[in-house]
Design a protein around this nucleic acid. Structure first.
Lengths: 107, 107
DNA sequence: TGAACATATGAACAACTATTCATATGTTGT
DNA sequence: ACAACATATGAATAGTTGTTCATATGTTCA
């Protein structure tokens, strides 16, 4: 049976559109394999752009663009040391989100 | 070897490209606010297409297309009861992935 | 069988996105 | 100041994706 008089406001526990949009935006960051690879690479150590570029066998520009996107989402931060800029994950949520994703895949 | 795909596999602890692609594909499912809303709506009860369509104030077609995508990713399943087809989440990973995402946002 | 209902589907279009290429910015050592 | 290096950035492009519209499939009941 279904109730035709349901309105959006009657949905229990449904967060506001704004929050659901933010949630989707967060997952967008993990929805590209290049970005996932970058985050995976940053799990253990901080790395500079050329390190990542070499590891993933992709151009410096492509990596730099993606790092900018990840930084704008506050998933990575960086520090400058001379000419080199080292990137690292900003917090442990990144690790746990990726780990949880793998849990789902490897079952 | 200077095989283009070889270098990525030399990274310690870096899963294979195929798995990282699967991971990104999984997160793609959560990277659209319509799909997140649908999954959220299915957290408590199973619902038919028109229920969801009404809740989200979107066309039946749009919801049906997205449900097909979610089903192809094995995130939802369905059962037919007469004319109506009820959808539900296929497992609890969906809930925990969304919950983890919210943890990150609400801090 | 036919009408009403519930859902699925294909094509088309607009919006978005990741990469490439060329170039700019910023840093170090000479 | 200049050359070499490391990274950032803007524009262009190709590929992807979500929604709409029209229509098809499948089910129930009279």
């Amino acid at each position: 049976m279904h109730d035709k008089n349901h309105s959006a406001y009657e949905i229990k526990g449904m967060p506001k559109d704004e929050h659901l949009s933010d949630l989707a935006d967060l997952f967008k960051m993990f929805a590209d394999s290049t970005r996932v690879k970058i985050m995976f690479a940053l799990m253990d150590n901080e790395l500079c752009v050329m390190d990542i570029s070499g590891m993933l066998n992709m151009t410096q520009s492509a990596i730099s663009h993606q790092l900018k996107i990840l930084k704008s989402a506050n998933l990575v931060t960086n520090r400058r040391d001379g000419k080199t800029i080292y990137y690292r994950l900003s917090d442990d949520h990144v690790k746990s989100i990726i780990a949880q994703g793998f849990d789902h895949i490897l079952e």
